[in-house]
């Protein structure tokens, strides 16, 4: 009989967690409005969340684009369709790989750092100290980080996609000898600005929201011990990655499903 009680306890815990997350999100949205009026705090977080993630985004984007160019070329050339290489590289990057891989890298690089930072602030009672001084930590500590992640990920995604397209160009055109005009023309022929690029940006906006929210939530509600912080960090990366992959399917079905 014990395991039935355990099941009930787990369910209650889970539902309570969802409710806590919902209330936290509502409070955070309000705090974001206050944080917007102190934009220098957001800029400071944009540096640590966005600029410091730039290098890993640039390097992985370049290599993903190069691999796409290589794999795409060898597959397409067996159908005599290597002229579509530009289209293959650009569509895969704008629709899927750009938003998803950027979000996964972002969760690993910036999300974990956010959780660890906020969790440690909590463990060392800095957040409690702020509350003691009648200062709400949400608009000062949490909201700027949340906003910064929300702003940074779409920009990082655009950079990732662009550098990937250039990586495909380097391999397809410079190394494998495809004509440069053919590469760009096939791309411009098939990639639609609204259907493909804007939908990719919408995806990255959603991913930015979800990944950053999970990161600050896990940090804010971490058990204030060193073990608790380390667990929260792991949970951020795992939950954020799974949410990104699951949401990606849903968004793709909504965006490209009816055609």
């Amino acid at each position: 009989m014990n395991w039935i009680a355990d099941l009930g306890a787990k369910t209650l815990q889970y539902v309570a967690g969802l409710g806590r997350a919902g209330r936290f999100f509502a409070a955070l949205t309000g705090a974001c409005l206050i944080a917007l009026s102190r934009f220098s705090l957001v800029v400071k977080q944009l540096y640590s969340v966005g600029v410091l993630t730039l290098l890993i985004i640039l390097v992985s984007g370049l290599f993903v684009g190069m691999v796409l160019g290589l794999q795409g070329y060898y597959t397409l050339v067996s159908f005599g369709a290597e002229s579509s290489l530009g289209l293959v590289v650009a569509l895969s990057l704008t629709r899927e790989l750009g938003p998803v891989l950027s979000a996964l890298l972002f969760a690993g690089r910036a999300g974990s750092a956010l959780t660890a930072e906020i969790g440690l602030m909590k463990a060392t009672q800095q957040l409690d100290a702020m509350e003691m001084m009648a200062t709400d930590p949400l608009p000062i500590v949490i909201a700027p980080r949340f906003l910064a992640g929300f702003i940074a990920l779409p920009l990082l995604t655009a950079i990732f996609t662009s550098i990937g397209v250039i990586g495909g160009y380097l391999i397809g055109v410079q190394q494998l000898g495809l004509d440069s005009g053919v590469y760009w023309a096939a791309m411009q022929e098939g990639v639609d600005f609204y259907d493909d690029i804007i939908n990719g940006v919408i995806k990255s906006l959603v991913f930015g929201l979800v990944v950053t929210f999970i990161a600050v939530y896990q940090g804010y509600f971490a058990t204030p011990t060193s073990e608790g912080v380390s667990r929260a960090t792991t949970r951020t990366v795992v939950n954020a990655s799974l949410s990104v992959l699951g949401l990606d399917y849903v968004l793709t079905a909504l965006m490209f499903g009816e055609i």
């Binding site: 996609t161 791309m187 690029i197």
Partner: peptide
């Protein structure tokens, strides 16, 4: 760059 060079805007 995506809009003008990759897309068809």
């Amino acid at each position: 760059f995506l809009a003008l060079r990759v897309g068809n805007l």
